[in-house]
Simulated assay, not measured.
Amino acid sequence: MSGGTIYGVGLGPGDPDLMSVRADRLLRNARHVAFFRKAGKKGQARQIVNGMIPEGAIEFPMEYPVTTEIPLDDPRYNEVLSAFYADCALRLTELADAGEDVVVLCEGDPFFYGSFMHLHSRLKDVCKVEVVPATTGMSAAWTATGQPITWGDDVLTVLMGTLPEDELVRHMKDTDALVIMKIGRNIAKIRRALDTAGLSDRAWLVQYAAMPGQTVTPLAEADCEKQPYFSIVVVHGQGRRP
């Protein structure tokens, strides 16, 4: 394929010092920078790189048409988001066809529950796309607790707090170490599931891992009503060790 390249650049969990050398180099030489954000907000990815985008670079904010306004199980949710991703992909393709490289900023790792995956699936067969991996938010979260997440042969499971409660319990009982993401309004359901699985006394809540305002709290002492978007629950493995 000829033309420019679309770079999905992982920025890591939030601290610019945790970005990779390649991510830093691509960003500081970028002519076009795209990033996702909620309408009316600056966007977390954009905030991470404040002061790093070259003067004169053209910014392309991609504003989500919905976040929580439509329930996830409503068919309209996928329809609206699919059209949004298709439109963003078209805009990026036009830039690549004109010979321009574009750096797409991605929180965490682009291929780990990130929005860039939806662009990648639409772009990979029509223009050049490269993905720059990064440290994930969950890695920053368990590091913030000061304890290893897995030992020996421990099995690590990553769960979304949006799952039904019985599904959460089933997966929790079938693992050694645990990371739960997408906490938000699901915190009460998650705590009930951890209680049922017998893991509550080992669970930690980490807010804003590797960002300003980071907190690490035993889950039993945390607010049970609602948590910010950047919250992760961690349950450490207790496996084999010398």
Rank of each mutant, 00 (worst) to 15 (best):
G161T: 05
A188L: 07
T67G: 07
I6A: 10
M181N: 02
V129K: 06
A220H: 01
R28A: 06
A86L: 08
V235I: 15
G152R: 13
P212W: 05
L27E: 01
I149R: 13
A177P: 05
W142L: 13
T68M: 15
T135S: 14
G14L: 09
G14S: 09
F111I: 00
D109S: 01
H236F: 04
A86V: 05
T93Y: 00
P242S: 02
D109K: 00
M172G: 00
I149N: 08
I149G: 06
S139N: 11
G152M: 10
H236E: 07
D87F: 02
T175D: 02
T67R: 02
A96D: 01
A96S: 13
H118V: 12
Q214S: 05
A188P: 03
N50T: 14
Y85P: 04
G40K: 02
V66A: 13
A39Q: 08
M211I: 13
P148R: 10
P148L: 12
P65D: 15
D174L: 12
R37M: 02
R192P: 03
V102G: 04
N29Y: 01
P148D: 05
D74P: 11
R240F: 08
A141Y: 10
V235P: 03
A96M: 02
V179P: 00
M62E: 10
P133L: 12
P54R: 10
R46F: 07
F60L: 11
A89F: 04
K38D: 01
G3Y: 10
Q44I: 10
